[in-house]
Design a protein around this nucleic acid. Structure first.
Lengths: 127, 127
DNA sequence: AATAAAGGTTCCAGCAACTGGAAGTTCAAG
DNA sequence: CTTGAACTTCCAGTTGCTGGAACCTTTATT
Protein backbone atom coordinates (compact mmCIF):
# COMPACT_ATOMS: atom_id res chain seq x y z
CA UNK A 1 0.00 0.00 0.00
CA UNK A 2 1.44 3.40 -1.04
CA UNK A 3 1.75 6.27 1.35
CA UNK A 4 -1.23 8.07 -0.19
CA UNK A 5 -3.50 5.14 0.53
CA UNK A 6 -2.02 4.77 3.99
CA UNK A 7 -2.80 8.43 4.55
CA UNK A 8 -6.36 7.90 3.38
CA UNK A 9 -6.74 4.83 5.58
CA UNK A 10 -5.27 6.39 8.71
CA UNK A 11 -6.48 9.94 8.42
CA UNK A 12 -2.93 11.27 8.69
CA UNK A 13 -1.34 13.39 5.94
CA UNK A 14 1.53 11.75 4.02
CA UNK A 15 3.91 14.36 5.37
CA UNK A 16 3.04 13.39 8.91
CA UNK A 17 3.50 9.71 8.17
CA UNK A 18 6.94 10.37 6.72
CA UNK A 19 7.74 12.45 9.76
CA UNK A 20 6.73 9.61 12.08
CA UNK A 21 9.07 7.38 10.16
CA UNK A 22 11.88 9.91 10.41
CA UNK A 23 11.61 10.03 14.18
CA UNK A 24 11.46 6.26 14.34
CA UNK A 25 7.84 5.68 15.31
CA UNK A 26 7.07 3.34 12.44
CA UNK A 27 9.20 1.69 9.78
CA UNK A 28 7.37 0.67 6.60
CA UNK A 29 8.86 -1.68 4.03
CA UNK A 30 10.30 -0.39 0.75
CA UNK A 31 9.47 -1.68 -2.68
CA UNK A 32 11.81 -2.00 -5.62
CA UNK A 33 11.02 1.52 -6.78
CA UNK A 34 11.88 2.91 -3.34
CA UNK A 35 8.24 3.62 -2.59
CA UNK A 36 7.13 2.99 0.98
CA UNK A 37 4.91 -0.04 1.42
CA UNK A 38 2.40 -0.13 4.27
CA UNK A 39 0.88 -3.39 5.48
CA UNK A 40 -2.35 -3.87 7.42
CA UNK A 41 -0.53 -3.74 10.71
CA UNK A 42 1.23 -0.54 9.71
CA UNK A 43 -2.14 0.99 9.02
CA UNK A 44 -3.30 -0.23 12.39
CA UNK A 45 -0.36 1.49 14.06
CA UNK A 46 -0.97 4.68 12.12
CA UNK A 47 -4.59 4.79 13.24
CA UNK A 48 -3.44 4.09 16.77
CA UNK A 49 -1.06 7.03 16.54
CA UNK A 50 -3.71 9.27 15.03
CA UNK A 51 -6.06 8.57 17.92
CA UNK A 52 -3.44 8.89 20.61
CA UNK A 53 -2.30 12.23 19.16
CA UNK A 54 -5.88 13.45 18.91
CA UNK A 55 -6.20 12.72 22.62
CA UNK A 56 -3.25 14.98 23.17
CA UNK A 57 -0.59 12.41 23.99
CA UNK A 58 2.89 13.67 23.19
CA UNK A 59 4.96 11.91 20.57
CA UNK A 60 7.08 10.38 23.32
CA UNK A 61 3.97 9.12 25.06
CA UNK A 62 2.83 7.70 21.74
CA UNK A 63 6.13 5.96 21.30
CA UNK A 64 5.70 4.25 24.65
CA UNK A 65 2.05 3.43 24.11
CA UNK A 66 2.80 1.96 20.71
CA UNK A 67 5.54 -0.13 22.20
CA UNK A 68 3.22 -1.35 24.94
CA UNK A 69 0.56 -1.96 22.32
CA UNK A 70 2.96 -4.27 20.51
CA UNK A 71 4.10 -6.01 23.65
CA UNK A 72 1.95 -9.05 24.34
CA UNK A 73 3.37 -9.26 27.87
CA UNK A 74 2.71 -5.67 28.87
CA UNK A 75 1.13 -4.82 32.20
CA UNK A 76 -1.99 -2.71 31.89
CA UNK A 77 -0.73 -0.78 34.92
CA UNK A 78 2.02 0.71 32.75
CA UNK A 79 -0.48 1.97 30.25
CA UNK A 80 -2.75 3.30 32.93
CA UNK A 81 0.11 5.24 34.50
CA UNK A 82 0.86 7.02 31.24
CA UNK A 83 -2.78 7.84 30.70
CA UNK A 84 -3.21 9.08 34.26
CA UNK A 85 -0.18 11.30 33.87
CA UNK A 86 -1.66 12.71 30.73
CA UNK A 87 -5.00 13.39 32.38
CA UNK A 88 -3.19 15.31 35.09
CA UNK A 89 -1.46 17.35 32.43
CA UNK A 90 -4.77 18.05 30.75
CA UNK A 91 -6.28 19.11 34.06
CA UNK A 92 -3.39 21.46 34.64
CA UNK A 93 -3.90 23.05 31.24
CA UNK A 94 -7.64 23.36 31.72
CA UNK A 95 -7.00 25.01 35.08
CA UNK A 96 -4.63 27.52 33.53
CA UNK A 97 -7.01 28.34 30.73
CA UNK A 98 -9.91 28.79 33.11
CA UNK A 99 -7.84 31.12 35.21
CA UNK A 100 -7.01 33.16 32.13
CA UNK A 101 -10.57 33.12 31.01
CA UNK A 102 -11.83 34.40 34.34
CA UNK A 103 -9.36 37.26 34.49
CA UNK A 104 -9.91 38.20 30.91
CA UNK A 105 -13.62 38.02 31.08
CA UNK A 106 -13.73 40.29 34.11
CA UNK A 107 -11.72 42.84 32.14
CA UNK A 108 -13.95 42.50 29.10
CA UNK A 109 -17.07 42.95 31.19
CA UNK A 110 -15.66 46.10 32.69
CA UNK A 111 -14.93 47.61 29.28
CA UNK A 112 -17.69 49.64 27.68
CA UNK A 113 -16.23 48.94 24.27
CA UNK A 114 -17.16 52.03 22.32
CA UNK A 115 -15.29 54.78 20.51
CA UNK A 116 -13.84 56.31 23.67
CA UNK A 117 -10.19 55.62 24.53
CA UNK A 118 -10.87 54.83 28.16
CA UNK A 119 -10.29 51.07 28.48
CA UNK A 120 -10.21 48.90 31.61
CA UNK A 121 -8.71 46.02 29.63
CA UNK A 122 -5.56 47.95 28.79
CA UNK A 123 -5.49 49.38 32.28
CA UNK A 124 -5.70 45.87 33.68
CA UNK A 125 -2.86 44.73 31.46
CA UNK A 126 -0.79 47.74 32.45
CA UNK A 127 -1.32 46.77 36.08
CA UNK B 1 18.68 50.62 33.21
CA UNK B 2 20.51 47.49 32.05
CA UNK B 3 18.71 44.46 30.71
CA UNK B 4 19.27 42.50 33.90
CA UNK B 5 17.48 45.12 35.95
CA UNK B 6 14.76 45.38 33.33
CA UNK B 7 14.34 41.62 33.59
CA UNK B 8 14.10 41.89 37.34
CA UNK B 9 11.59 44.73 37.11
CA UNK B 10 9.39 43.11 34.47
CA UNK B 11 9.60 39.48 35.48
CA UNK B 12 10.76 38.50 31.99
CA UNK B 13 14.09 36.76 31.37
CA UNK B 14 16.75 38.82 29.55
CA UNK B 15 16.61 36.36 26.67
CA UNK B 16 12.93 36.99 26.21
CA UNK B 17 13.41 40.74 26.33
CA UNK B 18 16.05 40.54 23.62
CA UNK B 19 13.76 38.33 21.62
CA UNK B 20 10.94 40.87 21.89
CA UNK B 21 13.33 43.47 20.59
CA UNK B 22 14.38 41.25 17.73
CA UNK B 23 10.79 40.82 16.59
CA UNK B 24 10.17 44.52 16.91
CA UNK B 25 7.94 44.65 19.97
CA UNK B 26 10.06 47.10 21.88
CA UNK B 27 13.12 49.15 20.99
CA UNK B 28 15.30 50.20 23.94
CA UNK B 29 17.98 52.87 23.64
CA UNK B 30 21.65 51.99 23.44
CA UNK B 31 24.38 53.43 25.55
CA UNK B 32 27.93 54.20 24.49
CA UNK B 33 29.09 50.72 25.42
CA UNK B 34 26.37 49.17 23.27
CA UNK B 35 24.43 48.03 26.32
CA UNK B 36 20.67 48.29 26.06
CA UNK B 37 19.14 51.03 28.16
CA UNK B 38 15.58 50.68 29.45
CA UNK B 39 13.56 53.66 30.63
CA UNK B 40 10.58 53.67 32.94
CA UNK B 41 8.19 53.50 30.03
CA UNK B 42 10.08 50.57 28.56
CA UNK B 43 9.65 48.74 31.84
CA UNK B 44 5.99 49.60 31.75
CA UNK B 45 5.69 48.06 28.30
CA UNK B 46 7.59 44.98 29.36
CA UNK B 47 5.27 44.44 32.29
CA UNK B 48 2.33 44.99 29.98
CA UNK B 49 3.72 42.33 27.66
CA UNK B 50 4.39 39.94 30.51
CA UNK B 51 0.80 40.17 31.68
CA UNK B 52 -0.72 39.94 28.24
CA UNK B 53 1.40 36.87 27.48
CA UNK B 54 0.48 35.29 30.80
CA UNK B 55 -3.15 35.71 29.80
CA UNK B 56 -2.36 33.73 26.70
CA UNK B 57 -2.44 36.51 24.11
CA UNK B 58 -0.31 35.67 21.09
CA UNK B 59 2.68 37.81 20.26
CA UNK B 60 0.73 39.35 17.40
CA UNK B 61 -2.16 40.16 19.73
CA UNK B 62 0.37 41.69 22.10
CA UNK B 63 1.78 43.79 19.32
CA UNK B 64 -1.66 45.21 18.60
CA UNK B 65 -2.55 45.66 22.24
CA UNK B 66 0.71 47.44 22.90
CA UNK B 67 0.09 49.71 19.96
CA UNK B 68 -3.42 50.46 21.20
CA UNK B 69 -1.99 50.99 24.66
CA UNK B 70 0.27 53.66 23.27
CA UNK B 71 -2.41 55.27 21.18
CA UNK B 72 -4.15 58.03 23.13
CA UNK B 73 -6.93 58.12 20.52
CA UNK B 74 -7.72 54.43 20.52
CA UNK B 75 -11.29 53.16 20.71
CA UNK B 76 -11.89 50.75 23.57
CA UNK B 77 -14.04 48.76 21.15
CA UNK B 78 -10.89 47.73 19.29
CA UNK B 79 -9.32 46.38 22.44
CA UNK B 80 -12.49 44.64 23.47
CA UNK B 81 -12.72 42.91 20.10
CA UNK B 82 -9.23 41.46 20.48
CA UNK B 83 -9.96 40.32 24.00
CA UNK B 84 -13.27 38.77 23.00
CA UNK B 85 -11.60 36.91 20.17
CA UNK B 86 -9.06 35.61 22.60
CA UNK B 87 -11.72 34.44 25.05
CA UNK B 88 -13.36 32.53 22.24
CA UNK B 89 -10.07 30.90 21.45
CA UNK B 90 -9.62 29.97 25.09
CA UNK B 91 -13.11 28.51 25.19
CA UNK B 92 -12.35 26.46 22.13
CA UNK B 93 -9.21 25.08 23.73
CA UNK B 94 -10.96 24.33 27.00
CA UNK B 95 -13.65 22.50 25.05
CA UNK B 96 -11.11 20.40 23.22
CA UNK B 97 -9.26 19.54 26.39
CA UNK B 98 -12.46 18.59 28.18
CA UNK B 99 -13.40 16.36 25.30
CA UNK B 100 -10.03 14.64 25.52
CA UNK B 101 -10.29 14.38 29.25
CA UNK B 102 -13.69 12.74 29.09
CA UNK B 103 -12.64 10.15 26.53
CA UNK B 104 -9.41 9.43 28.28
CA UNK B 105 -10.90 9.19 31.69
CA UNK B 106 -13.52 6.72 30.49
CA UNK B 107 -10.71 4.55 29.17
CA UNK B 108 -8.73 4.86 32.36
CA UNK B 109 -11.75 3.94 34.46
CA UNK B 110 -12.31 0.85 32.35
CA UNK B 111 -8.72 -0.31 32.83
CA UNK B 112 -8.04 -2.52 35.83
CA UNK B 113 -4.40 -1.42 35.79
CA UNK B 114 -2.63 -4.45 37.14
CA UNK B 115 0.01 -6.84 35.86
CA UNK B 116 -2.22 -8.47 33.24
CA UNK B 117 -1.76 -7.44 29.60
CA UNK B 118 -5.45 -6.96 28.92
CA UNK B 119 -5.94 -3.20 28.55
CA UNK B 120 -9.04 -1.24 27.50
CA UNK B 121 -6.97 1.89 27.05
CA UNK B 122 -4.86 0.38 24.30
CA UNK B 123 -7.93 -1.27 22.83
CA UNK B 124 -9.66 2.08 22.80
CA UNK B 125 -6.71 3.69 21.05
CA UNK B 126 -6.57 0.86 18.53
CA UNK B 127 -10.22 1.53 17.77
C1' DA C 1 5.06 5.57 -28.50
C1' DA C 2 5.01 10.05 -26.56
C1' DT C 3 3.54 12.89 -23.21
C1' DA C 4 1.21 14.92 -19.37
C1' DA C 5 -0.56 14.48 -14.86
C1' DA C 6 -0.48 12.41 -10.55
C1' DG C 7 1.89 10.60 -7.03
C1' DG C 8 6.13 9.11 -5.10
C1' DT C 9 11.20 10.46 -3.26
C1' DT C 10 14.68 13.54 -0.63
C1' DC C 11 16.10 17.61 1.56
C1' DC C 12 15.74 22.25 3.41
C1' DA C 13 13.19 26.02 5.55
C1' DG C 14 9.81 27.82 8.56
C1' DC C 15 5.96 28.17 12.07
C1' DA C 16 5.51 29.99 17.83
C1' DA C 17 7.87 31.69 21.36
C1' DC C 18 11.33 31.16 23.33
C1' DT C 19 15.81 28.82 25.55
C1' DG C 20 20.64 27.24 25.87
C1' DG C 21 25.25 27.75 24.75
C1' DA C 22 29.57 29.61 22.67
C1' DA C 23 32.69 33.34 21.92
C1' DG C 24 33.82 37.74 22.71
C1' DT C 25 33.23 42.80 25.32
C1' DT C 26 32.73 45.65 29.34
C1' DC C 27 32.15 46.76 33.99
C1' DA C 28 32.54 46.61 39.19
C1' DA C 29 34.98 44.80 43.19
C1' DG C 30 38.93 43.58 45.80
C1' DC D 1 45.56 43.79 38.09
C1' DT D 2 42.77 40.31 38.07
C1' DT D 3 38.66 37.87 38.67
C1' DG D 4 34.01 37.33 37.90
C1' DA D 5 29.54 38.90 36.68
C1' DA D 6 26.88 40.87 33.31
C1' DC D 7 26.59 42.35 28.78
C1' DT D 8 26.95 41.62 23.48
C1' DT D 9 25.99 38.72 19.04
C1' DC D 10 24.99 34.63 16.67
C1' DC D 11 23.61 29.85 16.00
C1' DA D 12 21.15 25.69 17.29
C1' DG D 13 17.43 23.26 19.40
C1' DT D 14 12.76 22.69 21.27
C1' DT D 15 7.43 20.33 19.47
C1' DG D 16 5.05 18.46 15.74
C1' DC D 17 4.50 19.11 11.93
C1' DT D 18 3.87 21.77 7.05
C1' DG D 19 5.25 23.89 2.57
C1' DG D 20 8.07 23.95 -1.27
C1' DA D 21 11.79 22.73 -4.60
C1' DA D 22 13.90 19.40 -7.48
C1' DC D 23 13.75 15.07 -9.06
C1' DC D 24 11.91 10.11 -10.22
C1' DT D 25 8.16 6.61 -11.19
C1' DT D 26 3.69 5.25 -12.46
C1' DT D 27 -0.60 5.85 -14.78
C1' DA D 28 -3.68 7.82 -18.12
C1' DT D 29 -4.53 9.98 -22.40
C1' DT D 30 -3.62 11.11 -27.11
Amino acid sequence: MNIGDAAEASGLPPKTIRYYEEIGLLQPDRRGNNYRDYSGSHIHSLRFLARARSLGFSIEDCRQLLSLYGDRCRASADVKAIARGHIEEIDRKIGELEQMRATLSALVDACHGDARPDCPILEGLAG
